[in-house]
Amino acid sequence: MNSNEILSECNKIFIDQLDNDAIVLKRETTANDVEEWDSLTHIQLVVAVEKQFKVRFTTAEIQGFKNVGEMCDTIEKKLSSK
């Protein structure tokens, strides 16, 4: 699964978790771009992403992501090293 495919899967997760069909994630998307993405939904999003891809992030990784694209890149690396 490449980073674009991961982004597409993440989009589905965000739509489901945030109950907003209009969400279109781009690599540069951040929490500031999505109204429903707040501190509480952030946790639910991370948990849903970790479960979907069967990967685990570290706290440092989560805090270091500058945008959705960086998260997808990290997921790709974790999947390829499995």
């Binding site: 952030h42 946790i43 991370v46 948990v47 685990r56 992030f57 706290t59 989560i62």
Partner: peptide, 11 residues
């Protein structure tokens, strides 16, 4: 059932 250390959560 599961631990999510990145966001200090447990299911």
């Amino acid at each position: 059932e599961d631990i999510f250390e990145s966001v200090k959560s447990a299911e």
